[in-house]
Simulated assay, not measured.
Amino acid sequence: MTTLLLTRNDVRGLTDMPAVIAAVEEAYRSFGDGKVDQPPYMGIHLSTPGAEIDFKAGYSRANELVSLKASSGGFRDNPDRHGVPNGMGTVMLFDGRSGALVCIMDGSLLTGLRTGAAGAISVRAMARPDARSLAVIGTGSQARMQVRAIREVMQIETIRAWGRSSANAAAFAVEIEGQFDIPVTLAGTAAEAAADADVVVTTTRASEVVLRPGSLKPGTHVVAIGTDQRGKRELDPELFRDAYVVVDSEAQCAEKGEVQHAIAAGIIEQAHAEIGQVLLGRRPGRTSAEQITIFDSTGMAIQDNVTAAAILALARERGVGMPFDFLTQTS
């Protein structure tokens, strides 16, 4: 059996946000239906200060593929010292029926795409149908991806954005306005950005609260993306007291997501639902127009699995990539 190698350029040419949203939505349903095996992910902190590599594995019985993604980050000196990005990703796909390695692909763009898709899925399932205004807290690459994905499911009329770096925030505004023709206003604080928004997305790497009680109007939907490890936080735990809380994985979010802090503070015992249960119609997405809803997303291996599977299928259809054979014997 041959293995297909897909480079970053290959993957970039094979990605399509609506297709990724559809794949991730189906993955959430499969997870909610118990058709996914997904062990806890493993993180290794390295000798370089702030650097780590995370490993996420998952098996989908629907597509009979096992995925393993390695994601590195925090290597701030990489571009200057080694000529490579400060964070990278690689995905391997194995045939669930034989165990054979069928594909190795660059996972850097894939991670951003499936995370953006997760936010969009929560907006479609949980935001008010008349939502039109978006606030973005954090103005990095994932903030851009969230806008790219959410505009597929919501008519965004205005964006208010805030980031710690004014230069990065200004660049974000120029790029979003140029690419999507959506007006972007830069706010002086995170609270100012969120004040009148229908949907608020948080995409920072903060370890301190950036969004506090009183900064959200009734009916707001919050997409909390940045917290995926113990100690990280973006939301004040008090925001959870009267909110309807949905997570991607209850076990994972209770340990590493935004809800870890609300649970530790005794404000909630657990989330109200997983997003897969909402999509399957087993739990509501929101119960009133005035309700504040929160989606806590830590990112799951099954998202990588189905997104990579969709990319692989398209690569085979178009004849993209470099095939090679690990098992070829030479004399």
Rank of each mutant, 00 (worst) to 15 (best):
A143K: 03
E250K: 13
Q229R: 14
V24W: 01
L134C: 12
T115Q: 05
M145H: 08
A131I: 15
Q329L: 14
T185I: 03
E26A: 06
A271K: 06
V209N: 09
G96A: 15
G119P: 05
R76N: 05
A243C: 11
R282K: 15
A19N: 01
R8M: 14
A19Y: 00
F326R: 10
S71M: 02
D77R: 13
R241A: 15
E192Y: 06
T2A: 14
A22E: 02
T204M: 09
D198P: 07
A313L: 01
C253M: 08
A194G: 00
I137C: 07
G13Q: 03
S72C: 03
E175R: 12
C253L: 14
I44W: 06
L113K: 03
T139W: 11
A313G: 00
L239H: 05
E177Q: 08
F94C: 09
N86S: 01
D181E: 02
A310D: 00
N86H: 00
L312K: 04
V246Y: 07
C253G: 07
V222C: 11
P85F: 00
K69T: 01
T15L: 07
V200F: 06
G87C: 00
G116L: 01
Q38C: 09
R205A: 12
A308V: 07
A191N: 05
R29H: 09
A243V: 14
A173F: 05
G319K: 06
G231F: 10
E177P: 08
G96L: 06
M42Q: 14
L110D: 06
A62N: 09
V306N: 04
R230I: 13
A310K: 10
L216N: 06
C253Y: 11
V24N: 02
G281P: 13
N9F: 04
G99E: 03
S331N: 08
P237K: 13
L109I: 15
Q142E: 12
L101G: 07
R282V: 13
A193H: 02
A251H: 11
A149T: 05
T328W: 11
R29E: 01
A187P: 04
R233F: 10
S47Q: 13
A135R: 07
V200T: 04
S133W: 14
Q229V: 09
G178Q: 05
A167T: 14
K56M: 05
D33Q: 15
A161D: 10
A187L: 03
R164Q: 12
V11A: 05
F180G: 01
L68T: 13
L101C: 14
S207M: 11
A187C: 01
V20C: 01
Y244H: 14
R8P: 05
R128H: 06
R12Q: 10
K69M: 04
G13S: 04
G13Y: 04
R282Q: 14
I156H: 08
S215F: 06
A243S: 15
A62Q: 07
M88V: 02
V200D: 03
